[in-house]
């Protein structure tokens, strides 16, 4: 029984170490990534891996409450991604002087065509 416990510990420790390395690689991508959406994708993946590590720790250390931490972390990371996407879409549209509304797609397209025509004339 002692041996199998040791085997579980070695397995979970090894997986946690590898996941930590993967998190570092994702951080590298989130710094390098050229666009804002690349960074958001990388940060989202870091969140996934942190959830995995927390779940593994809850079994490794035999602490039940870490599973609740997992659930809440998942919810907050989802909320963070949604808010970041909304904010950056709004920032982009405001910079282009367009309306940030689903019903305004035709309006925005007309505006863009007018701008392109203007540019072609110049």
């Amino acid at each position: 029984m002692e041996l199998i416990q040791q085997a579980y510990n070695v397995l979970m420790t090894a997986i946690i170490v590898v996941l930590a390395g993967l998190i570092i690689l994702s951080i590298v991508r989130s710094i390098l990534g050229p666009g804002i959406s690349d960074r958001i994708i990388a940060v989202n993946m870091i969140g996934t891996m942190v959830i995995m590590i927390t779940a593994i720790f809850s079994v490794l250390l035999d602490e039940n409450y870490l599973v609740d931490v997992c659930l809440i972390y998942a919810m907050i990371s989802f909320l963070g991604v949604v808010v970041l996407c909304k904010v950056y879409t709004g920032v982009y549209l405001q910079r282009k002087h367009m309306k940030a509304d689903l019903m305004a797609i035709e309006d925005n397209l007309k505006k863009q065509e007018a701008l392109e025509e203007e540019e072609a004339q110049i």
């Binding site: 989202n44 991604v81 996407c85 950056y88 879409t89 982009y92």
Partner: peptide, 9 residues
């Protein structure tokens, strides 16, 4: 959400 952001920007 991310793909919509990417398609817009």
């Amino acid at each position: 959400m991310i793909s919509r952001l990417e398609a817009m920007t």
